[in-house]
Design a protein around this nucleic acid. Structure first.
Lengths: 115, 115
DNA sequence: GTTGTGATTCGAAGGTTGTCTAAGTAGCAT
DNA sequence: ATGCTACTTAGACAACCTTCGAATCACAAC
């Protein structure tokens, strides 16, 4: 990605997205377009050590364990997080490369007009 | 936004999102989490003059005019685009401030771990 | 006025999603 | 083995979303 180009706006506003590219990105965006999954992603990423146990996450919501498990699966299928079982507990962590794809889409390359 | 802080990851992965903040952002993300709307946003932003007529947009899809109109309304309701009627045609343009909110969420502040 | 074109709104059909309960799997401790 | 705890899978149901055709609105030209 030639970041040296001077442009006013986010990449998404600089050239038209291809049909397949848009479809791919939409899958990724659908995964994060949910309040619970946004918070899960945020909680996992900001947890000490960069990873969080499911037990840490479930208590923060008024939702049942299967529902949390479902949301974690959606995030994992999208490639935004990965997981591993260590003994009794299952730990999740963020996959930065995938998160960065979203950042690259919307991030302004030059000074934003406001905020 | 204190951008001077040295951090490894996107803001979303640095501290837990609040419940209401997550709900707000989810609304915004839902608006862009669709292939058609992603392409619409992209086409509007990259169009000459920074704005596009609905007639320009409709032809690029295998969808009926009401469907395109619906998607434009979703984007407009979310505050991602704005519109104005000038004579016969209706023109749409991007609201950069709103797009930047998404960029600020996922953009890494320092070097990403990879890529 | 009337007619024609661009765009939106309305109402409905079909598919997708979020949530639950119930049941299942994996590991630890007795 | 038995039981207990942590987590996932399966199935069901209500709510929502995308899409369409038909109707409607807005404007320009005649």
């Amino acid at each position: 990605m030639t970041a040296s180009t001077i442009a006013c706006c986010a990449p998404i506003a600089r050239e038209p997205l291809g049909e397949t590219e848009a479809a791919e990105l939409a899958v990724l965006l659908k995964a994060v377009a949910d309040p619970v999954r946004l918070r899960l992603l945020s909680m996992i990423g900001s947890h000490a050590g960069g990873e969080a146990c499911v037990c840490d996450l479930t208590d923060a919501f008024d939702l049942t364990a299967p529902t949390i498990s479902h949301h974690l699966k959606v995030l994992r299928t999208a490639g935004l997080i990965d997981s591993e079982r260590r003994g009794t507990w299952v730990y999740y962590w963020i996959v930065p490369e995938t998160v960065n794809r979203l950042g690259a889409l919307f991030a302004p390359l030059a000074e934003p007009a406001a905020i």
